[in-house]
């Protein structure tokens, strides 16, 4: 499946990057595609492209601070987790993401 990931942390330097790396690694291991947007105080934002959001089957938000531009994902199935959990337990989150995806597919 295709995943769009948004991570955020206070300064935008450490946690958002680490969460993104951990989840991306886990996602690729399972054969999923992932596009990433990181947010935070000192970060130069690289926004997800509209078509990346459009194509994504699910959205994962791993946040420590409120993310900006939440409206973009309004009609998408979203998994909302804390950034700390993403750093420590990327597997658990990917399990949940797959579960969410399967639930949608089966409907």
């Amino acid at each position: 499946m295709k995943i769009a990931l948004i991570t955020s942390c206070m300064a935008g330097i450490a946690h958002s990057k680490m969460a993104a790396t951990a989840l991306k690694k886990e996602a690729e291991k399972r054969g999923h595609q992932m596009s990433i947007e990181e947010q935070g105080g000192h970060k130069v934002p690289v926004k997800l492209k509209p078509e990346e959001i459009e194509e994504a089957d699910i959205i994962i938000i791993a946040k420590a601070v409120t993310i900006s531009g939440k409206d973009r994902f309004k009609n998408k199935p979203t998994l909302d987790v804390s950034v700390n959990k993403a750093v420590r337990k990327p597997k658990e989150i990917m399990d949940k993401a797959e579960e969410l995806y399967n639930n949608i597919e089966n409907k």
Binding site: M10, G12, G40, G41, H42
Partner: peptide, 16 residues
Amino acid sequence: GLHFRTGVSYMLPILL
């Protein structure tokens, strides 16, 4: 906690 951190996150650049 989340809201507080968000406030601090926007505050950091101005402090810098």
